[in-house]
Design a protein around this nucleic acid. Structure first.
Lengths: 148, 148
DNA sequence: GCAGTAATTGCATCTGTTCGCAATAGCGGA
DNA sequence: TCCGCTATTGCGAACAGATGCAATTACTGC
């Protein structure tokens, strides 16, 4: 359950970066979130343990962790980003425009599209977290009923 | 070439919204852009004709036009949005992470994925402008050569 | 264990975007 | 054509996120 197992510290040092308390706190905060954590949530959680940490550090560190691929960022629309510990298997999300519910879809499902694009246009799509918007079954049924 | 043909004015009134000079200027500004227009560009163009228009109005109106589906918004990464007149055919974009170049892909190509998601999870994906990130052919080749 | 060095942080500041509220001005009806 | 209602605007301020710079501090080699 913990992120200790990746030995992220070694990974950072290996590449010439430093392991700082801030970075560990921020990584912890994303872990705690389980699912998708917003920068603001990270800030709150970090701040609860160490009130001196600056907002700018949060943003810089989130970018940094993404570059290291320890964390993945997902755009959930409305220019809002959420962060998540990079799991072993990439996966994607379906976000309901109406109720906001988030469902997962496997990478398998979208792989076919990426392969097709590769074949047809030689463009290598490289997204480990795609967010697709639409209507969940429940809201779609409600919408159909609602049409006068 | 003009957007007059949609009779957007009637569309707005029909739904109880008002047709204001600001909205017309903003629509014009998006049209002028041809391709993808940023809020800042819209602001500049509108301001050139009518300097009193407020920034907040630009943002509110862009959202409004998106809701009316007269305009589509696309997230081109880095939390930046661009706006475009809603054409007859939805299309999507491939954005190169390295050089930033934007290629188009047809709706046909992605339709298969949406249909699959519909079948498998009953979720109706409803995106008329999807942006996929990755490497364009040129940059991918450069990257392969660059690997030591 | 200590000192040097460069990566990282905090601070102050700036930019782009959103929001509440009072003033303005489209639109429908008389 | 004028009036009233309320959608919309402009304004000011708040807000999230980015950035340049000086101070701090984690790591390396002694």
């Amino acid at each position: 359950m913990s992120h200790q197992r990746w030995d992220y510290a070694a990974l950072m040092r290996e590449r010439g970066f430093r392991v700082t308390p801030q970075r560990q706190l921020i990584l912890d905060a994303i872990c705690e979130g389980g699912g998708h954590t917003t920068p603001e949530e990270v800030y709150e959680r970090v701040r609860a343990k160490s009130p001196a940490v600056n907002r700018a550090t949060i943003y810089r560190t989130l970018d940094f962790l993404c570059e290291l691929r320890l964390v993945v960022a997902a755009d959930v629309g409305n220019r809002r980003m959420v962060y998540e510990i990079a799991g072993d298997t990439p996966h994607h999300h379906l976000v309901c425009r109406t109720c906001g519910k988030v469902e997962q879809i496997s990478h398998e499902t979208v792989k076919a599209l990426f392969a097709k694009i590769e074949r047809e246009q030689e463009f290598t799509v490289d997204m480990d977290h795609l967010a697709l918007f639409g209507l969940c079954p429940k809201c779609r049924r409600a919408e159909l009923r609602g049409k006068r």
